[in-house]
């Protein structure tokens, strides 16, 4: 299985520190707080999807797990957070962690079975698992509220201090804090021994196992870590919107997050941060014009990225920066 990665041409050894792009993105994200105080709910939503895409990058970009069912973990996280709140556990931070753990447990249980597969069979099975969970949630109305979803939940203030407001100020900063934390964690992971092992698994499973590496165990761990972050993202959606709808488990969500990641650039973490705002802003801005017309724009962007601008926004940015510095890496990976 080959994954096209928006590689920087540098080995992980050469970039151990937090990269500039991430700092710039987070600085911009903070600026949004002051410049667009009336759009913070949307901004929080974008942050949640950036986090969701980040989780997919861990599975897909790092470990090469091609999945069309990642919404399963996002949805499990969202429902868990909703159930906890409705059951009286209103503390948000522990709620997020528990939700993430539930999603990770599901991935850990599924991993040993489905991660043996590669290519199309893997795609089909992840899709089938996703659809199964969606249909299950649809039918178990006593548990999930079915079409009506879960509502009427409230959460206590973050850290006992920051009250939730209708303007989304707390929501946004809370999401941003989780995103920064997860990004830092993922960054540490990619530059770690385990990160190298995962990229080895992505590139060549056979060679990896014949070098004495337990590929299935590594894949399962990566899948569970990825699911944890996806579950966190889902929980954040439940907490910021105080609602959990069926669509958190839908195939459309799985496709959304894949497209976000690919538009941003697969395999280097920043893709998630870059893709989410672009995708969701285009969707948001053209929505009033026609509810589905935005898809034509995204569709053309996707085809363009795949045929011309391989590596997505991150890949293009990287090339521009390198060119302005007057150097292009030698033997640069595609």
């Amino acid at each position: 299985m080959k994954i096209t990665v928006s590689s920087t041409g540098l080995s992980a050894l050469d970039r151990p520190r937090m990269p500039m792009i991430a700092l710039v993105v987070f600085a911009l994200a903070l600026a949004v707080f002051f410049v667009f105080p009336d759009r913070l709910s949307l901004a929080a939503y974008i942050g949640i999807f950036a986090l969701f895409a980040l989780s997919l990058d861990l599975a897909l970009g790092m470990a090469g797990i091609v999945t069309l069912g990642h919404a399963a973990f996002f949805g499990v996280g969202a429902y868990t957070a909703g159930w906890l709140a409705l059951a009286g556990w209103q503390e948000p931070i522990t709620g997020v962690v528990i939700s993430g753990l539930c999603a990770a447990a599901l991935a850990g249980a599924l991993g040993p079975f489905i991660l043996r597969l590669t290519g199309l069979p893997l795609v089909m099975v992840t899709l089938a698992v996703g659809v199964f969970l969606f249909e299950a949630a649809n039918k178990l109305t006593w548990l999930t509220g079915g079409d009506d979803g879960l509502y009427g939940m409230t959460f206590s203030p973050v850290l006992g201090i920051f009250e939730w407001s209708i303007y989304g100020t707390t929501d946004y900063l809370y999401v941003l804090a989780w995103l920064a934390l997860a990004f830092y964690g993922c960054h540490r992971l990619t530059t770690s021994n385990f990160g190298l092992a995962l990229r080895g698994v992505r590139e060549n499973r056979l060679r990896m196992s014949l070098l004495g590496s337990s590929v299935l165990a590594q894949l399962t761990l990566a899948y569970a870590l990825s699911a944890f972050i996806a579950g966190v993202a889902g929980a954040l959606l439940a907490q910021t919107s105080e609602f959990v709808g069926l669509e958190v488990l839908s195939v459309e969500k799985s496709i959304d997050v894949l497209v976000i990641l690919v538009l941003g650039g697969v395999g280097h973490l920043y893709g998630a941060l870059l893709g989410a705002p672009v995708y969701l802003l285009i969707k948001d801005m053209s929505k009033e014009w026609n509810p589905h017309a935005w898809m034509i724009i995204i569709g053309f962007m996707l085809v363009f990225v795949m045929l011309v601008a391989r590596g997505g926004i991150h890949g293009v940015l990287h090339k521009v920066i390198e060119r302005s510095r007057g150097k292009l890496p030698n033997g640069e990976p595609r």
Partner: peptide, 12 residues
């Protein structure tokens, strides 16, 4: 992804 892109274009 390419075929998803084509599907999106159709939907739009």
């Amino acid at each position: 992804l390419l075929t998803v892109g084509i599907a999106f274009i159709f939907v739009g």
